[in-house]
Computed example of a mutant assay.
Amino acid sequence: MSASCRFEASILKHDELEIVLSTHHPSIGELTRDKLETLRSRLRDLSEKERTFARHRQREARGKAEPRGGSFSGTAEHATRRKQVFVAAIKRISKEIKRLQKFEAKKELGEAARRALALRRAKQFARPPNDFGSSEGMRSIPSRRRNFRIPPSKIGRVSQANKRAQARRDAR
């Protein structure tokens, strides 16, 4: 389930909110691919941090870990919701990066097809020069296969032998 911008604003700090808001529709289309990659890495760091906090809070609730620092407020659910907001932003950025990659691949494919068509047309309409004069013609290339001369008496001997053997079996 996606979170609304109002929910994101209520759960995130100001600097984190600016990062997450830049992953929403109008502003994500203005970012270059390099900026998207750096933004994704920053969001991954924030998500991992929140995951660590959530796991530690869960361990505290079960009594398996000591409380950690005095500045971390909220419950494990709060950290989990913050992590989910960051993960949703990472997904949006990943989709945008994939979209840009597909666009670039289509563009490169179109350019390659145009180059290939230009080459083909150049080759198709190129005609050999029309020179009038005698030429030697085609060269004869001798065959490298050995010539086998089979005597006419040997032709068909195997099939005739099979025929006779079948006749003997049938006569029994």
Rank of each mutant, 00 (worst) to 15 (best):
T75M: 08
E37D: 10
L17N: 04
R59D: 13
A54D: 12
K35D: 13
F132G: 05
K64W: 06
S94C: 05
G74E: 00
K106A: 14
L117K: 10
V158T: 13
R120Y: 12
S140N: 08
T32R: 09
E18F: 05
F53N: 01
I141D: 06
E16M: 02
R59W: 08
I11Q: 06
L39N: 02
L36P: 04
F72Y: 06
I97Y: 00
S134E: 07
G63V: 09
S41A: 07
A79W: 11
G74F: 11
A54T: 14
R82S: 00
P67C: 08
E50P: 03
D34Q: 11
F53H: 05
E96T: 14
G156R: 07
L43N: 03
Q160K: 15
H56G: 02
S159P: 02
F148R: 11
T23W: 01
L119A: 15
P152W: 01
R168S: 00
D170I: 02
R99F: 05
L100Y: 06
L43T: 13
E37M: 04
S2C: 04
K13H: 12
S134I: 03
E96I: 01
K163C: 14
A122G: 14
R55E: 07
K91F: 07
R168F: 01
E30T: 15
G110Y: 04
L46P: 00
E136H: 08
D45Q: 02
R42E: 14
F103P: 00
L119R: 12
I141A: 07
A116E: 14
D170V: 00
A105W: 07
I90S: 12
I150R: 10
E50F: 05
S143N: 10
R92G: 01
R169A: 04
H25F: 06
S153Q: 05
R62S: 10
S2Y: 09
S27Y: 06
G137V: 12
R33H: 09
N130G: 02
R164L: 05
R149E: 03
T52D: 15
